[in-house]
Design a protein around this nucleic acid. Sequence first.
DNA 1: TAGATTGTTAATCGATTAACAATC
DNA 2: TAGATTGTTAATCGATTAACAATC
Lengths: 201, 201
Amino acid sequence: MKSDIPVTSLQRLPVYLNYLKSLDAEGYISSGAIARALGMGEVLVRKDLAYTSAQGRTRVGYVLEELISALEDYLGCNDKKKAVIVGAGELGNALLSYGGFSNYGIELVCAFDTDETKIGKTIGGKPVYSVENEKEEIEKLDAHLAVLCVPAKVAQSVADALTECGVNKILNFAPVLLRVKEGVTVRNIDVAANLAILSSM
Amino acid sequence: MKSDIPVTSLQRLPVYLNYLKSLDAEGYISSGAIARALGMGEVLVRKDLAYTSAQGRTRVGYVLEELISALEDYLGCNDKKKAVIVGAGELGNALLSYGGFSNYGIELVCAFDTDETKIGKTIGGKPVYSVENEKEEIEKLDAHLAVLCVPAKVAQSVADALTECGVNKILNFAPVLLRVKEGVTVRNIDVAANLAILSSM
DNA sequence: TAGATTGTTAATCGATTAACAATC
DNA sequence: TAGATTGTTAATCGATTAACAATC
């Protein structure tokens, strides 16, 4: 959607947003102050913020409240987006119970699993459905976001099924590189690999 | 440790490793074949692999087995490293039960929490200790890796305590930018932010 | 006014890609 | 030999940083 912004910049926007919200203050804040607090260059901060609708005032900086709004707007925190979880194992469980997605306008609406003992239950207030109803439910919900919390072996076939249902953004926790058709975006989070990378840094 | 390799390259090494292992084959593989499978440039693949001890044979490529070993060596999959989890909530739980860390030579040895009802229990075969024993246990274990699964509000103070115990690598799941002293490395995984980034891509 | 800050244009730096010699 | 592939050197591309004019 926002094809103009470098991914590196986009990735920093939530960092700014978290920091600014954590200040819990009012008034002005300068790019220099943000840069010092986050340990980065101030021009980079201004460049990043310039992708949003934020406008600084010369001599004083940005109005904190406006800046937060601009970041939230840009990141789509104000549009309601539905996401589904596939795989109601430990990780899926943890995500279903986590409240932080609402900050970004994302609602995890339900989960899908193959395990009979889980189907029909509720986790974190969200229903767990059978994968057999996946297509039906996703189309009914008109959800385009999915979080993959399934074992690596089945991740590709689950991803294929999801894209068939109209899902075009997949957050994948399985340690496999998914092949998806044109127009579908995948973002990977491999926790074990992250820990290994950290450990060899 | 490996200060010579660009972080971008380092981050791709686990991707190669996962792919090569998934082939479950023997014999030779060329950088071109890897590149095609993963959708990247073949020169980039060779450059990345060159940071490891891997050596290709002209005309045929790399010996699959050797290449896997070289990647594993470079990523330290063969040295045993101990990691602790702080925060035995849903997420900490999920990680304790996940087996994938052993592929990288990382062993999650225990968790710490403040919740009396969790302390003394075992999750995924790993004991949950009181944070009061944190220093004692971590020093006894000589662990230098920690995974932070605590709420954002306490993340900074928990990180401070950890570095006091000799932890110098922290994988942080809390949506806050941690300030740590020189010599300590932090890697952040903000799942909600990742989903928001994906959704605005 | 003097000083602080933004936003933009130019310079630098680093990572990716292209070109190609070396090898078997 | 001809052809395929590596590894390296040079060129390109993109992101970060530096410089600076504009503004209040």
